[in-house]
């Protein structure tokens, strides 16, 4: 089997898949490589060099899902030659706020939530402030935090798997969407200085960069 070359450039990872021809082989090579560095580079942005091959949107999503399984995010798809086909450009690279599901009511809270305080609403919640550890917000719809989310947030509390949790800085104790519960991995925390969004993808809560 042809193996993929992995390089690290300024905290980002570059995976070279130029030499690999079929998509199945690409996936295999990616899995093997990522398995060997499992958990080691959690949260790293990855660029993939696919040479002159074309990937369909579905294939791109499969690659993204493989990376996400290993805690990595796809940053760029690099093509070294050949014309760019429309399929190379994914419309779903980053989640944008406009893609949130609709709810009738939105509760706006303009203060910080401290430990022991909690809010519940059937619709969306927007918070202009921080949610500290020990605070809880539960919404039937989406949760948008214009501040740092350090406590617990539960979106889609009635079972809506499309609900999302968005925060200016997402650093939660625990996240819940519909009936999925996740928590950050044990050990050193990863500091991301970007707005992020948590949503369910292929039955798992994943965290992605937010495009505004």
């Amino acid at each position: 089997m042809v193996s993929a070359a992995v390089r690290s450039v300024r905290g980002e990872m570059l995976i070279d898949l130029q030499e690999i021809n079929t998509f199945t082989e690409i996936k295999e090579a990616l899995e093997t490589q990522l398995h060997s560095i499992n958990g080691y580079l959690l949260g790293t942005m990855v660029s993939i060099n696919i040479g002159d091959k074309h990937l369909t949107n579905k294939q791109l999503h499969e690659i993204e899902d493989i990376l996400l399984d290993h805690g990595l995010h796809l940053k760029d798809l690099i093509r070294t030659s050949g014309p760019l086909s429309p399929a190379d450009v994914s419309s779903d690279d980053n989640f944008s706020i406009g893609t949130m599901p609709d709810y009738e009511n939105t509760l706006l809270i303009c203060r910080n939530l401290r430990s022991g305080q909690n809010f519940f609403t059937e619709g969306n919640i927007v918070i202009l402030g921080d949610i500290n550890p020990g605070a809880e917000i539960i919404a039937g719809g989406n949760i948008l935090v214009m501040g740092t989310l350090k406590g617990m947030a539960h979106a889609g509390a009635f079972g809506d798997e499309k609900a999302v949790i968005t925060a200016y800085r997402l650093n939660p104790t625990q996240l819940r969407i519909a009936n999925h519960i996740t928590r950050p991995p044990d050990g050193e925390s990863i500091i991301v200085n970007n707005p992020e969004v948590a949503r369910i993808r292929a039955g798992k809560v994943v965290i992605e960069k937010l495009k505004i």
């Binding site: 550890p133 104790t173 625990q174 519960i181 928590r183 950050p184 044990d186």
Partner: peptide, 8 residues
Amino acid sequence: MGLENRIV
């Protein structure tokens, strides 16, 4: 105990 994020 370092178990805060496991509480449901």
